[in-house]
Design a protein around this nucleic acid. Sequence first.
DNA 1: TTGTACGCGTTATCAG
DNA 2: CTGATAACGCGTACAA
Lengths: 324, 324
Amino acid sequence: MSATLADIARATGSSISTVSRVLSNSPAANRISRETRIKIAQAAEQLGYRPNLLARSLRTRKTNTVAVMVSDIANPWFGRMASLIEQNLHRRGYSLIVCNSGEQAELEQEYLRLLPQKGIDGLIVVPITTDREKLCHHLPPGLALVVLDRPVEGVPASVSTDQQQAATLLCRELERIGARRVALVRGPEHVSTHRMRGEAVKRHFDVLVDHVGAAQLETGHAAWSEIARTSPDAIVCTNNFLGQGLMEAMAQSNSRLPIGCFDEITALDLLSVPLVSCVQNVPLMAERAVEMLLCQLQGRKLPAEQKISAQVVSNREFKALFPR
Amino acid sequence: MSATLADIARATGSSISTVSRVLSNSPAANRISRETRIKIAQAAEQLGYRPNLLARSLRTRKTNTVAVMVSDIANPWFGRMASLIEQNLHRRGYSLIVCNSGEQAELEQEYLRLLPQKGIDGLIVVPITTDREKLCHHLPPGLALVVLDRPVEGVPASVSTDQQQAATLLCRELERIGARRVALVRGPEHVSTHRMRGEAVKRHFDVLVDHVGAAQLETGHAAWSEIARTSPDAIVCTNNFLGQGLMEAMAQSNSRLPIGCFDEITALDLLSVPLVSCVQNVPLMAERAVEMLLCQLQGRKLPAEQKISAQVVSNREFKALFPR
DNA sequence: TTGTACGCGTTATCAG
DNA sequence: CTGATAACGCGTACAA
């Protein structure tokens, strides 16, 4: 076990409180004689003292830790997001713990209950549930909360992409190349991003095939075997995993159907299919989310809900086939 | 604030100890009368009691939490790994916190110091440092520790891919297609996986270009501008990010140089370049890592260091150009 | 400038 | 079967 305040007090012949004052450099630390201060510091150094953060937090009710709960850490999009949030927070003296709800409502609930018990000051969450009540039920009232990527009615601190703008951008690009009838591969209805993207597609196009499933590669695979029997002008996928899965399956055939995909696809320009992708501004989202969290932690005024705009990027194949 | 044991004791007219016994279903809970037991349970339910895990851990010195520290959570490989570890641990009643060292030695040290202070029962780490002393210096002696992916001399609990076998597999495949002189794009020397892979390549081939940098897309980009001026028979990248970056840059040209890449590349078959990739068995690694951690947590005998073998997978383009 | 005493919420020991 | 009481390690009002 690590040395405690008591150990140091004993070693230096001072009292626990004095040691505490010095080592936690509290405001009262200045009012302590230079000599005892360095004597204590030396002893601490020598004994390898590490404050027990559990005990400290129990006492102060602050942990200097925030959690981010993402819906699928295996998805590179969330990985990037987590990484950027970590960097932003670390710069501000907070440490981050990442939780993975794996897109399972029960697991989300479990973590929502567990995290406050373990002690966190704030939470950034990509929620599964769309219900404010369910989301906040187990959270202590004071907890700083930011919802990310998927706004929840009634939660003021919210950072997300403007899905209307994003979807319009993508659909316009597909309309430009003459698409009228499309196949749609989309994630679960109850996830707002997938739903809004899907709805936008339905507004713009005649949807020949509407394949719904978990936002995983496998759904993309399955979708292709359904789509292959039809002949749409293009295929739209509501996220990167769906797009990747679809393309993996397509690769077995020789289809060159144009694809519109929400979220980033790696090595875009190396793909042999024409692809236009609608990418979100992940770094900006991460920054804003941390900012909104810190506003709450520091009692500053919360800025308005953040709607961040997206961009479309098309690959070489796409540009070659459909020049402007 | 949440209700405490004292609140419930007051509400039910029993003592704190009794309430504790019931609510923490300790072994002594059986020896408590049925009626007070349900009375307490009801009060707890009604008051919305949640045990303060900080306090509990302070007392019991157990947190039921393990941490996994990866070197780059933005890399899908680590994301997948983290996700699988999470699932394995959750099944066993542990909750997971993920830390990201971002391949920075100082940040790793910081977390290494911080995590035990925050209270964890075990740690699975993909280490930056190769020095056992540095790795364990700040860790309490009793802490369960597993090193993952990058073995560290002197740490018995270790799960990693057999890099010799993996590298040989990949090199043989490139030799088969006639490669003799290759360009090498590799990550930092001090990371064992990159180093071992690179060394194996140097043993098998004549290395025309040897580009070293951080294991990020940008290094791959930069490498291509160097490689493009030469004419190797093939290019080898020591991880997925390097491979992706390289290919992104290659896509601007029309090169069809064969690529050998360690780690998984998404949508392999859609790439227009011939590619053979050497993939690790991530699910098995995750399972073994958790298993070794639990051995330590439960005081069971530790199995031998795990060396897990890899496979090569080539894409359509590669198979078409170089049939067996 | 420093020490005393108490409390944060739990669990564990011991007595009855 | 149950209730005091003492820790766990730390911060802090209050007193000296």
